[in-house]
Design a protein around this nucleic acid. Structure first.
Lengths: 195, 195
DNA sequence: TCCACTTGTTCGGCTTGACGAACGCAGTGC
DNA sequence: GCACTGCGTTCGTCAAGCCGAACAAGTGGA
């Protein structure tokens, strides 16, 4: 572990992948209720290897990880990306509301994937005005917007698009973007997807 | 009671991960326009290693893959899961329309994640009537619906919920479910999420 | 034509991950 | 009390990944 050839470029983004993988392995194994020995046996890897991986030690190869994924019945990406949600119902006037610094913008989070969200679904209500500029979010974020009612100017700053009811737009959320209502009673559904 | 761990969920991933990773590395490097030597240098790995990986030989460790991901500016999961979209606009009257056997139901697919979709986003338009019953989809599917306009009876058959504009509901898509409009001009956004 | 430069692919070596055995612990039955 | 079975961790050994250098192949300029 002396030479840190991994380090290289700055952006460490989501932290050390090894720790994330270690946590995922523990979590998923706990979900199945299997013992470390049993999982290792099913995956065809030495239990010593699995033990070290779950403790965050080591630097597994993809073959090892793949075998463990099969044994745990999960997708490869689930080791580094989070698990999924279950089921939920929220009324229009319920749910956590997120208000902008200005009163003419309100977003209600209707579906999130705790604890580490992959995609959040919001219902947006905006009053006509100068519009709301959002700063970039996490790298890899993609935002999908479907206009429900009204009219709005949505998209990347510098190249927004005017949307009418039913129109759909997707844009990278890790770039500065805009949501400006052009008509009263403008509502939309926004899906913020984090990769 | 034993779920066969291999195929527990229907959607099979694309077989050997090493080949998928090899293809992803080539594709992403081609996208950036960088040379093999340059990518290897930026990632801090030997170009011989990268060469072998792109040819499908070898069994890389996560540190190596992580370094390459950083150098290529992509997410870890993109190596095995497909690449992400960029920007897209679909007008209300555009996009692939999926019409029901009855003429009073139409769904437009506005966003999918090919080839192995995790979540699809539809815009739904339904006319009042006896409603549309959907047969169960893939196991693990979750459907999210946000009503845009109108009024509708949505949810599992036997326990549907009446929604008004802005209301949100999520239900397991792998059980029989219903979408029945109760008012004219009923539109909604439906997110079908496959695990 | 020759030379300098780059790209991507093969070879020895050193490092390291994966394996199997042995270990300490806890619970159980004789 | 003792042997036994299961758990998860730690210790040597061997194979394999990773690296650096040398290698063919292709390009541009003098």
């Amino acid at each position: 572990m002396q030479n840190d050839r991994g380090g290289g470029v700055g952006k460490e983004s989501s932290g050390a992948p090894l720790d994330v993988i270690a946590g995922s392995l523990r979590r998923e194994r706990a979900r199945t209720g299997l013992s470390l020995t049993e999982v290792a046996k099913r995956a065809g890897v030495a239990k010593s290897t699995l033990s070290q991986l779950e403790s965050g030690t080591g630097n597994p190869s993809v073959e090892t990880l793949w075998a463990l994924c099969v044994a745990l019945g999960i997708q490869f990406a689930d080791l580094i990306d989070p698990p999924r949600p279950t089921v939920q119902v929220i009324r229009a006037n319920e749910g956590p509301a997120i208000h902008s610094e200005r009163a003419d913008y309100s977003a209600t989070l209707v579906a999130s994937c705790p604890p580490n969200a992959r995609r959040d679904i919001y219902r947006i209500t905006v009053a006509p005005g100068p519009g709301r500029e959002s700063q970039p979010h996490m790298p890899g974020t993609v935002e999908h917007v479907i206009l429900s009612t009204g009219r709005a100017l949505i998209g990347l700053i510098g190249d927004p698009v005017e949307l009418n009811p039913g129109d759909y737009i997707a844009y990278p959320g890790d770039l500065p973007h805009l949501f400006q209502a052009l008509a009263p009673d403008t509502t939309a559904v926004l899906i913020s997807e984090t990769s």
